[in-house]
Design a protein around this nucleic acid. Structure first.
Lengths: 250, 250
DNA sequence: TCAAAAGTGTTGCATCTACACCCATGT
DNA sequence: ACATGGGTGTAGATGCAACACTTTTGA
């Protein structure tokens, strides 16, 4: 702890400090083991203090003055839930004056988590001794009323995901390194909330040139399905000129 | 303006306050009166202090603790350039640690300005007695090196505009209330930086159902062209679930 | 009457959609 | 053998790009 003196110019604009928070909507595919198609789920954190005490809210925390926004999103997400996303992108900055009693600007990120890592990461987090009862998974389609404006933020994150899945390979943020076309199609179906024709889906992704077939097959109760993996030469998602900027400032 | 000295307690998390700034990329269509097609231009502000003193930069300023982000964007834009946008949308939050000597998180907006209002608003701003020599218009395609990471921000704004023009009616943020199809096509051509077939363009916008024909025509040196206006029943741009949120918090 | 932009028609190509059909495996 | 999902083929619909063509004005 050191004390420093700084000179600030006080104008009528700065009566109290504006604090910067970072939150993350992290989505995954959850399978119910009952033959139902997988559905989108996300972890929420129970608030332990006012405002909105005991309400469920997005994982997040305060931005440190020595870390970048994306680093803060990953850090606060990991600290509160133990999760490490496979994809992370900024969603929106929320800064309405009335969204919290004190003035807070929240930089919200959205993230994807591979469905095969949910259990492992959750277990590791529980074993680390942190309070696991304050983190709970919910289905995105049937959320309770959340703290602040977090319901709308989750809706917006899903809207962005639906949009982006049409022109990028984000859906693979849900999947392990190798997967069948049926796995991929189920991810698309959960995101878009409609059934897709398996035959046409196959041709579309093959034509996109982002998939590489492996010589392995998943054997199950029927004809084995070929496993594919993603072509690393293709970008995961197109973020325009910003993609290079993000890398630079990391 | 008064100067005060304040004492801050340094902890590992909060050694100095994180300040929140707001900037705006405001684009318009500029016609050169030489028969050339119009090009995208934007106003920049010369910095009068360090860092990057004398460099050109995006108009902006500090967020007040009693105003919403979008209000701050409109206010700082108007204070620095005298301009009032016809369209305003959040672009991205930039918060890399190293983008400025002190820690600043910049919420950047992008905006459109009707080409017929550029001169009027600029003239009013000059008449108001503010320093006009520190605001200058540049063509977006041939910018000098700007302060901070502002070149990349302008690139990103143009990328967003190019994207959005494909699935929304943002292009009309450039145009007056009534316009010809050639006006609209020129706006699209400037945004996308390629020529469009007039016949196909006409059919596409007519099929989109966003245009209402008026019974007026613009008479010029050739066959008069019908004037159209936008159907107010159609949203200006689709922002997903956020559109309602924005209105609520305004 | 001619140049040029406004506006219409038509054709070909690529893509999407629906659905019939064959293939390969576990039971 | 047969049910089931994996995988291929194909015909119709739709949308878009290219471009020929007609219309209407000012000069």
């Amino acid at each position: 702890m050191t004390e420093v003196k700084v000179t600030v110019t006080r104008t009528e604009q700065h009566s109290e400090p504006i604090r910067v928070a970072v939150s993350t909507v992290i989505l995954t595919l959850r399978r119910d083991d009952d033959g139902e198609p997988p559905r989108i789920a996300l972890p929420l954190v129970r608030r332990t203090r006012a405002p909105h005490q005991d309400s469920w809210s997005l994982p997040g925390g305060w931005l440190r003055d020595d870390e970048n926004l994306e680093d803060a999103a990953a850090r606060t997400l990991h600290e509160t839930t133990g999760l490490s996303p496979s994809y992370l992108e900024q969603l929106y900055a929320f800064g309405a004056v009335d969204r919290s009693p004190s003035r807070v600007v929240s930089i919200v990120y959205w993230a994807l988590l591979r469905s095969d890592e949910v259990d492992a990461q959750s277990a590791a987090h529980m074993a680390s001794g942190l309070a696991p009862e304050n983190v709970q998974w919910f289905e995105a389609a049937t959320l309770p009323t959340l703290a602040f404006d977090h319901n709308q933020i989750v809706d917006y994150a899903q809207w962005r995901l639906r949009n982006k899945v049409g022109y990028s390979r984000v859906a693979h943020g849900f999947l392990p390194p190798t997967f069948t076309l049926a796995d991929l199609r189920e991810a698309y179906e959960a995101i878009l909330d409609r059934r897709l024709d398996p035959a046409n889906f196959r041709r579309q992704v093959e034509a996109s040139g982002t998939l590489l077939p492996t010589d392995q097959f998943r054997t199950g109760s029927h004809r084995p399905a070929r496993l594919y993996r993603y072509d690393d030469a293709v970008e995961l998602a197109d973020r325009g000129p910003l993609a290079t900027e993000e890398k630079r400032t990391r």
